[in-house]
Design a binder for these strands. Structure first.
Lengths: 151, 151
DNA sequence: GCTTTACCTCAAGTATGCTTGAGGTTTTAT
DNA sequence: ATAAAACCTCAAGCATACTTGAGGTAAAGC
């Protein structure tokens, strides 16, 4: 397993190439760069050039977004990647593991919600005051004895 | 002014009461009303009054939002509820069942994503071009033979 | 009666995540 | 050599989901 996947020309990418390969708009890449999610350097003619790593970064960004993670949080997470060198397999693994936790968390919350909803389908939500859909996070700010949040 | 701690009577609710019991801000309720998510009528003094059903509606809205459904879609879904009368248990059940489908769908998508990610943790995302995280929805727009979306 | 609290409307502001457009430069293809 | 395509910057615009503020009315409590 000697030579890496250097089979083709492993050159730097222009913004248009990254756009084509990632499916993102050029404007989106500019935007991500302005937010520090990706980085580039410039040619003498002031055009952006990207390391091929950017494609993985962008893939990670898209995955994270699909799970509902806001860009600011993604940006935070991406900081585990080295700024000065190309990320290693280990670097990517760390990041992947982190997303997995996020995902697990999100999935378990939604599953809980679904199960609660199942209970409510049975009860027809007739008695929401004892319905599990009453999220404990959703404060009802009850004021008196006997005050009820729902119905 | 209606008492906010009138816990025993099944009377109509002022916007403040709904806010307290639902945990939403008054401004949010105004906003929801402007979007047609909830309805009210007015007192002679032009103040809003809500049927107690609004609390269930709001609960449903919050649940849907937690699953990532946008307000416009929630609004659509709420149209299965009768405008002229209080929803019956059957009406609520129909709505609940619908949310359950949405949830199931969302959960399965996230689960798929997590499983894909598991594979990628193993491979360290070294070869994203064959990584399952390459979402089929994310067009790569390849242009030539041998063009590669990643790496 | 008087004060405080709740309510009203409407406009504008905030945050996120981008897109669009204007005006101009660089690269690439013929 | 030119013309088209791609790129650049910066400002403004858009959609979603609300919040905040100004200016004024209504209702509740004492």
């Amino acid at each position: 397993m000697p030579s890496k996947t250097n089979s083709g020309l492993a050159k730097d990418l222009s913004v248009g190439e990254v756009a084509d390969r990632s499916g993102l708009a050029v404007s989106t890449l500019h935007f991500y760069e302005s937010k520090g999610l990706i980085t580039s350097w410039r040619t003498t003619g002031n055009q952006r050039r990207y390391s091929r790593d950017v494609l993985r970064r962008v893939a990670i960004i898209k995955v994270a977004q699909r799970t509902g993670v806001p860009l600011a949080a993604i940006s935070e997470a991406l900081k585990v990647l080295p700024a000065d060198r190309s990320p290693t397999a280990q670097d990517w693994r760390k990041l992947s593991a982190r997303w997995k936790e996020e995902l697990d968390d999100r999935i378990s919350k939604l599953t809980q919600l679904r199960d609660d909803l199942n209970g409510c389908i049975g009860c027809g939500c007739l008695s929401l005051k004892q319905c599990p859909l009453r999220n404990p996070d959703d404060e009802a700010h009850l004021h008196g004895p006997g005050a009820r949040a729902f119905d």
